[in-house]
């Protein structure tokens, strides 16, 4: 993750090792924190599964007798739905207000005093959280989908590692977007409206409600190139169900990498502006 440690000397120096250790420690704490919300995790898995059933039936009805819709076969569409339901908790569309809450209470000042950049430390915690979600919230929906609908099994082995990379990049891209939305709290008193807009737009435009390829071709392309949203959900799922040939598969992940890196840079820039504003105006 070169883009995170871009400000420190090259690999091998003790400085980097120390940074990595800190990063890892924060990630572990993020993992532990979410491990304590047991009842909520169970409830969320049940809800995700309920919507998995609903969306599967509707999308399968769309394929109709032909068994194909927008280039997806029935098994691919079922996988599409259930992987999506499993990934909701991993990329975490909704409910992340940690930064905004700390800005509102003023606790964010302590984050700024730490020797690690806030974007980096929040990212570490979020990766830890995502790690916990992979174990607790990804498995149940995917297993249910496999039992009740039968999922698509990738035919090419490189798809597996590519999917893993794609999920990590999706988490990073999602995190960076959420960070920017939360950081608006530095300027706005009430960011509920912005968060509402984020949860609606991100759900629709990332492909949670229907595969983006159901849209006209030009719209799909514009979304993919012009917004980070497809990189948050559609890309990892399309990679997993092998919707495209290998070259295009890799290309989508590369595009995802650009968006993840770009959004992280934006988050850092926004954070910088916010700190500048805090320093000038004293909050």
């Amino acid at each position: 993750m070169g883009f995170i440690t871009a400000t420190v000397p090259g690999p091998g120096s003790p400085n980097v090792t120390a940074h990595m250790r800190t990063f890892f420690a924060i990630a572990v704490s993020g993992f532990r924190r979410y491990a304590t919300y047991r009842q909520a995790t169970v409830a969320a898995a049940v809800t995700n599964s309920m919507f998995g059933f609903l969306r599967s039936y509707v999308l399968l009805a769309v394929t109709g007798a032909v068994g194909v819709a927008a280039g997806y076969g029935s098994a691919q569409l079922a996988s599409y739905v259930w992987l999506g339901q499993g990934l909701i908790g991993v990329v975490m569309f909704w409910g992340w207000t940690d930064l905004a809450d700390r800005v509102r209470t003023g606790d964010v000042v302590t984050d700024l005093q730490r020797p690690i950049h806030p974007v980096t430390s929040y990212l570490a915690a979020d990766l830890g959280r995502a790690g916990h979600a992979v174990l607790s919230r990804f498995g149940v929906p995917v297993a249910l989908g496999a039992i009740f609908f039968g999922l698509y099994t990738p035919t090419r082995w490189p798809t597996y590692p590519l999917f893993a990379i794609s999920v990590v990049l999706a988490v990073v891209a999602s995190f960076a977007c959420r960070y920017v939305v939360n950081a608006a709290a530095f300027w706005l008193l009430d960011i509920r409206g912005l968060q509402l807009a984020w949860s609606l737009v991100s759900g629709v435009l990332s492909g949670l409600y229907f595969p983006l390829r159901f849209l006209p071709g030009w719209a799909t392309t514009a979304l993919w190139l012009g917004t980070p949203f497809p990189s948050i959900l559609q890309t990892p799922i399309d990679v997993a169900v092998e919707r495209d040939r290998p070259v295009r598969q890799v290309g989508l992940v590369a595009l995802q990498l650009c968006w993840a890196a770009g959004m992280l840079l934006l988050a850092r820039w926004v954070q910088g502006r916010a700190v500048h504003r805090l320093v000038i105006q004293g909050g």
């Binding site: 509707v58 999308l59 009805a61 769309v62 394929t63 109709g64 819709a69 927008a70 609606l200 759900g203 629709v204 409600y209 229907f210 159901f214 849209l215 006209p216």
Partner: peptide
């Protein structure tokens, strides 16, 4: 947004 989802589905299927 919900309505949009329905309309999109009917883009790929007539019934």
């Amino acid at each position: 947004a919900d309505l949009l989802a329905v309309l999109i589905l009917f883009r790929v299927t007539p019934l």
